[in-house]
Amino acid sequence: MSSKEDFLANVRKILGRSGAPAPVEPVAATGLATSHGDARSEAEQARTVAAERAGELFGVAAQAAKTAGWTVHRLENIDQVSKRVIRICRERNITSTLSSTHDVLERAGVSGALNNTGIRCETLRNDGNGTKDAAFATGAGITGADWFIAETGTLVLHPRQGTSRLVSIAPPVHIVVMEQGSVLPSLDELWAIERASHIGGELGSMVNLISGPSRTGDIEATIVRGIHGPIETHLIMVG
């Protein structure tokens, strides 16, 4: 078996380098050319933009989300959220749901409201058992938004305690609740923030970008929704 050293030594030889491996000066085109200090201030800038342009970006995001295939619900205030979630579930005869612990869901009282109406809502907690069976059996996954990208209509989720990977992919319906302030203009701002997290040692094991329902075009190039992941994705925008 070849080891890492042999493998890399071979590549090094082919590239005509001799002696000990030397550091490489990144070209301007790659993000690696941006220093850690600059990367941090770029991420800070991105957050500022998201806050300062919150209202405007919310509108752009709504439009892009529709294009990406989200069903967009615009609500005036957070008190209306639970009612809308219940309506979505009832219309689809959904009797059980699985919810992340995003702050916005707790403030909206989604879980309590659902349980009170007889729609079961299980909130994710790390009990070491995993949530696989629940995620595959449930009618809808409910989450907040860690970020949203206006350029592409993309939800960003960082799986962690209280936000599983499966809650956004296994159930046939995914419902997202989002308030103003979490919309970034484009992929550039997102990856700037993720890079700064990495530099700070805070990048998690996964970054999920989700742009509408699961789809395939593998049968005669006909686009069909819901091959593996959610068949419907709802974006409830508050504010």
């Binding site: 294009t67 990406a68 295939g69 350029e151 592409t152 209509g153 993309t154 799986p159 992929l187 993720e194 990048l203 998690g204 094991s205 996964m206 970054v207 999920n208 970008l209 989700i210 742009s211 509408g212 329902p213 699961s214 789809r215 992941g229």
Partner: peptide, 13 residues
């Protein structure tokens, strides 16, 4: 403009 899913994996859970 983007595919439905882009997933960045940085090691195990």
């Amino acid at each position: 403009r983007i595919s439905t899913y882009v997933t960045m994996v940085n090691g195990p859970r």
